[in-house]
Design a binder for these strands. Sequence first.
DNA 1: GCCAACGTTGGC
DNA 2: GCCAACGTTGGC
Length: 156
Amino acid sequence: MPQYWLMKSEPYVYSIDDLEEDGQTHWDGVRNYQARNFMRDDMEVGDQVLYYHSNASPPGVVGVAEVVREGYPDHTARDPDSDYYDEKATEEDPRWYMVDIEFVRKLPRMVPLQEIKDEEALEDMVLVNRSRLSVQPVEEAEFERIVAMAEEEAPE
DNA sequence: GCCAACGTTGGC
DNA sequence: GCCAACGTTGGC
């Protein structure tokens, strides 16, 4: 049984189209402990990911990806030239981790954050209640509901 | 561009 | 270990 997640990316930095073009990518640059722990400890190959565009207008879920490599050290933390460099990261204690994800598909339409907020079945989503977390768990029913919403017409 | 929410840092 | 200051995220 796969688990379900939501991962945020700013489309100007790395969009679903970029992921489609690349096929797969390292999810580097996460510098939040809670998000790191999910990647390091909980994500498994085959898990399904809702791909979310943050800082977009409107923000929302745009596609699906899949975990293809489980947590391993984020090498950008030890690269002084990287924007994500962290002097406290060492080989023995890498401090930051990433996973690899693969493009699965774009949804037929974006499901905007506002629609997610308006949907009663989604009121417990982490996205709605703790908006800052960039890697977060999603219930299977929530995942399926959002995918179903993308198959439907946008509400008036 | 503003600013609220919230996570992290560092002085004590 | 508390908590004020500070920095970042991300919606609007």
